[in-house]
Design a protein around this nucleic acid. Structure first.
Length: 395
DNA sequence: AGTCCACAGGAAGGGCAGGCGA
DNA sequence: TCGCCTGCCCTTCCTGTGGACT
């Protein structure tokens, strides 16, 4: 065993490496140059510039599909603005989709207050009180404060737009500080669903990010791979293939970078000295499979029990069938069964996650139900079955 | 046209854990 | 210590639904 471990570690050190700076091809890497986003950078910067002389910039609403550079552009402009300002401009970035950080009104306001140096407990205070703490901390700060709220649509979908109404009217309550809000959303029609008063306040300025096309994605990949890989580490056609696959998915640069990085990791693990198109194919299915497996692992045990019930049947099954199987599985696995109402919700959640396909159908006088089937390749479904059996002891 | 089935799914509220202020 | 607040998970109760059957 130790011998084989030595072989792995020593072998890795002696292997020809594909990467020279792996960090440069991760999605968290923040490059100093963002190709094909000059207009967006200029527009955002020019809207925020008044903050340098102490004036409040307009609220901005940025929207575009995932992986179109919204967050990267915001970071880049924020960074430059910080460098230019004389500390009278404060920028705060918050991702509203982050679980347990900003996924409720309380947590959002608590996190914003914490960013400003206030201590706010995880729970326990009335939400109004947390608003008060945040407003107080803001007013203490002085100058111009720019709040960047990423994935704002996800939060509004969950808790409504009440918090946005409060935030967009924040300047009426402050004496020393001027606040500007930058909302970022993947959902292009998000604004239409907002309260008209919130809509007009939030979108004083709007910036739309268009998707990258395949040629632009190729160029982005080429620039990043020059930093990330050693010379001639990719075979001809590899960057083009990653770009083409990502372009099919609304021009998502994040997807293109992930594909190339995982393909290179697979190549390096195989001991290849260059990334080839086969590695990209393997990377594509690995990324999708890993995502699903990670979701399954993170599900609560009751949800895993429902999934296990679905996995025991082949072909189409209905909610009633699944509930009967689930009740048996609960008794065999020492679980207290939930009600059918709750199981129905868990089935809907699994459908939303893309693990199963649950379609509401009517069987006439035999009632209305969901027709459920697995939404995964057979090999992946088998793998998940194995994981639930060995790691989570389902039988 | 009316009835019926097997749920879907909304609304309300209970119970719990974690936390605060008096 | 107690009353009150939060989020979260869950149950209970209820109405709505679409198409086969009568």
């Amino acid at each position: 065993m130790q011998k084989s471990l030595d072989d792995i570690f020593d072998g890795y050190e002696n292997k020809k490496r594909i990467f020279k700076n792996k960090k440069a091809i991760t999605t968290s890497y923040k490059p100093d140059q963002l190709p094909y986003r000059d207009n967006e950078i200029r527009t955002l910067a020019s809207i925020l510039t008044p903050s340098l002389v102490g004036d409040r910039p307009s609220n901005i609403f940025i929207f575009g599909k995932p992986g179109t550079g919204k967050t990267a552009v915001s970071f880049l402009v924020s960074k430059k603005l910080r460098e230019k300002s004389n500390k009278n401009v404060n920028l705060f970035y918050l991702n509203c989709k982050m679980r347990n950080v900003a996924d409720t009104e309380y947590r959002l306001m608590a996190q914003l207050a914490r960013e400003l140096g206030e201590f706010v407990p995880v729970t326990g205070l009335p939400t109004d009180h947390v608003y008060g703490l945040f407003f107080k901390a803001l007013d203490k700060r002085g100058g111009v404060v720019i709040l960047v709220l990423d994935e704002i649509d996800a939060l509004v979908e969950k808790i409504g737009d009440n918090f946005l109404y409060n935030l967009t009217r924040i300047n009426e309550d402050l004496k020393n500080t001027q606040v500007s809000i930058v909302g970022i959303s993947n959902n292009l029609s998000f604004l239409n669903d907002l309260d008209p008063r919130v809509k007009s306040s939030l979108s004083e300025e709007e910036i739309l990010f268009h998707p990258y096309n395949a040629t632009q994605l190729q160029d982005i990949l080429r620039k990043r791979s020059e930093k990330a890989f050693r010379e001639n580490a990719t075979e001809p056609g590899v960057l083009e293939k990653c770009a083409a696959l990502a372009a099919q998915e609304h021009g998502d640069a994040r997807r293109a970078l992930d594909l190339l990085r995982v393909a290179a990791e697979i190549g390096e693990r195989e001991g290849a000295d260059r990334v080839c198109e086969r590695h990209v194919d393997l990377a594509e299915s690995k990324i999708d499979n890993d995502r699903i497996i990670e979701i399954v692992r993170s599900q609560p045990r009751q949800s895993q029990a429902v999934l296990w019930s679905i996995l025991t049947r082949e072909g189409d099954v209905y909610t009633g069938d699944i509930f009967s199987i689930y009740e048996n599985i609960c008794s065999e696995n020492g679980l207290k069964p939930l009600t059918q109402r709750r199981v129905s919700d868990l089935i809907a959640e699994l459908d939303l996650l893309g693990i199963i396909n649950a379609k509401v159908i009517s069987k006439g006088r035999y009632g209305r139900t969901r027709m459920i089937k697995m939404n995964l390749q057979v090999s992946l479904a088998e793998k998940i079955r194995g994981i639930l059996q060995t790691d989570y002891y389902f039988q």
